[in-house]
Computed example of a mutant assay.
Amino acid sequence: MLTFIGLGLYDEKDISVKGLECIKSADSVFLEGYTSRLMGADINKLEEYYGKKITFLGRADVEQHPENILKAAEEGNAVFLTGGDPMVSTTHADLRIRAKERGIKTGIIHAASIQNAVCGLSGLQNYRFGKSCSVPYPEKGWFPTTPLDTITHNIENDLHTLVFLDIKPDRHMTVGEGVSLIEQMAEKKGMKTPEIFVGIARAGSPEPVVIAGDAGKLKAADFGEPLHIIVVPAKLHLMEKEYLEIFAGL
């Protein structure tokens, strides 16, 4: 049996009761740390709270070499832990497909994800979001501009855009860095920079930071510790605008 369990947004206590009970009864516990991270708890804190030894997995361990996970699921009850909701990432869907092909029974225990958290923190209506995109750190000879294409297409269709920011083993992209890269994309393509950004830091923590405004305002703002994420709104509904004014300083 392989059960995919979402851990929620911030620390070890965000997990559901159902998820915690499943972990405690598991024979093997795996945690992937490349799509998202719980910034309020390290692996030692998770092991102490869950009462289980946890095997940490990188991207290659899941996407290229998942044999250890699948073998554990064939031999007993294995759980696969992820920050947020477990099936948001396509790599997790691929792992479930592989398990099914080997005759392994699977299950999912859902949890809060950044997709629903940003709606509550920003007041932007969830049914008005279009396709999301990710802003990666540029590399030598590689500076992608497709995120701006996604943002522009959504705005043309009066849809908001959730913009994920790159996570590396040694650094986490900030709101300011993300906004600056979007500005550079606009300059490179001869397009306008979006008029309004919403930056959010540490969703799910006791003191998240939410700031709305133009590019200059967000680049100058101090969002504090990671994780950060950006929303680029389309035309604001009256209530969305009021919410951002009250709770995000628009």
Rank of each mutant, 00 (worst) to 15 (best):
M1H: 10
M1K: 01
L7D: 04
D11G: 04
E12V: 14
I15T: 10
S16R: 05
K18V: 13
C22E: 15
I23G: 03
D27Q: 09
D27A: 06
D27L: 01
G33S: 12
T35K: 01
S36E: 00
S36G: 15
A41M: 08
I43M: 10
K45F: 08
K45T: 14
Y49C: 07
Y49G: 09
K53H: 12
G58F: 08
R59M: 06
A60R: 10
A60I: 07
V62Q: 05
V62S: 03
Q64F: 13
H65A: 06
L70Q: 12
K71L: 02
K71P: 05
A72C: 06
A73E: 03
E74R: 13
E74V: 10
E75A: 10
N77D: 12
A78I: 01
D85C: 11
M87T: 11
T91C: 08
R96W: 05
I97N: 00
R98N: 07
A99R: 01
G103C: 14
I104E: 05
G107D: 01
I108F: 01
I108Q: 10
I109Y: 11
A111P: 09
A112R: 00
Q115V: 15
C119K: 04
C119H: 04
G123I: 12
K131H: 06
V135I: 15
Y137L: 15
K140V: 09
G141H: 10
W142F: 07
W142Y: 06
F143M: 09
T146N: 06
D149V: 00
I151A: 04
T152Q: 10
T152E: 14
L159Q: 03
H160D: 07
L162Q: 12
L162I: 11
V163E: 07
K168L: 15
V175M: 09
G176L: 11
E177A: 12
G178P: 03
S180N: 07
Q184K: 14
Q184S: 13
M185H: 01
M185I: 12
A186N: 00
E187M: 14
K189I: 13
G190S: 07
M191S: 14
M191E: 14
T193R: 03
F197Q: 01
A201W: 00
A201C: 09
A201L: 09
R202M: 05
A203P: 05
E207W: 01
A215H: 02
K217Q: 05
A221Y: 02
G224S: 11
P226D: 10
P226G: 12
I230R: 00
L236W: 02
H237D: 13
E242S: 15
E245P: 02
E245Q: 08
I246Y: 12
F247L: 01
F247M: 08
